[in-house]
Design a protein around this nucleic acid. Structure first.
Lengths: 154, 154
DNA sequence: ATTTCTGCAAAATTTTTGCAAGAGG
DNA sequence: CCTCTTGCAAAAATTTTGCAGAAAT
């Protein structure tokens, strides 16, 4: 296991987080559907993979008969607004998505395109946020995206 | 002038940087065309505006008769490969571009969409790069993109 | 019962590409 | 001259939207 691999959640933790998602949705009048549960679960199960909407659709269309790509897009946007999912804009022309867990950075391999988490950068993120606040901005989300070569492609 | 405004280059500095671009292009066998000079100059003149390809095209089509959007895209990709221009992937679905000057971060207003530079974060960027190298990655470019509300929209 | 959500197809947006004509070194 | 670049139109790729039927509360 490489240092930047994201820790995998066990089934227990996944169930707990789904319950939390359901609670948050209900509180906001957002309906809980099979599609939403399974998109969320798929992101939870493969947090470190940062799939695109298309990738999520490809995996889930076998589990949800008749699932459409537009539903996946709408679901991800809904979760993003709820603060449950983060969108990662990248140079490859499509957005990638992840569960909105502890803030961290992303490293994208210029050769194989894989997205890795960069953990342990909270001190850096905090100092950037403080800098922004001092200058009159009100930062909400700070993304760090680095491009380069991963251990395999190096 | 707000603290994050990027310093404007005077005509003298712009001419010097264009000469440098021409030199770098010639060294790599890249031809120097009117289109390329004017796209580069436009970016130099409005470095802090981070225009999209479409915006650059809209501004330059009056200066270059018959200019096409695809040329702007190709030009920007060429400059990116030469290391002269940086692509900034954002959540708004289109790429923005800037002259590849001193590394800095970007702040995007969630309300008005404006892109601001965040200067003085080199220490943070350096520590992230060191962290990545320690973990076996070879980072080339590190982007910091923060979303939130600017002074006007706050 | 009411509101929200989904699937489908169609549209909108952004970016890329093939090719003949044109410009640069 | 030879090669690279441009413009045009067409295509590709990603994301959004309208609407009727289905599902959730």
């Amino acid at each position: 296991m490489y240092p930047l691999d994201y820790k995998t959640l066990d089934d227990n933790e996944i169930e707990k987080l789904i319950k939390k998602m359901i609670e948050i949705s209900r509180n906001k009048g957002i309906k809980v559907t099979t599609q939403r549960i399974l998109v969320f679960k798929e992101l939870l199960k493969h947090t470190k993979e940062h799939p695109s909407a298309e990738e999520l659709y490809e995996r889930l269309k076998y589990k949800i008969y008749g699932l459409s790509l537009s539903t996946v897009y709408r679901t991800l946007t809904t979760f993003e607004k709820l603060g449950l999912v983060r969108r990662i804009p990248t140079s490859d022309g499509k957005a990638h998505f992840e569960i909105a867990n502890k803030p961290h950075g992303h490293f994208i391999c210029q050769n194989c395109g894989k997205v890795f988490d960069i953990d342990d950068i909270e001190p850096s993120l905090d100092s950037i946020k403080i800098l922004l606040e001092e200058k009159g901005f009100r930062p909400q989300i700070c993304n760090v995206i680095c491009y380069g070569f991963c251990h395999k492609c190096n």
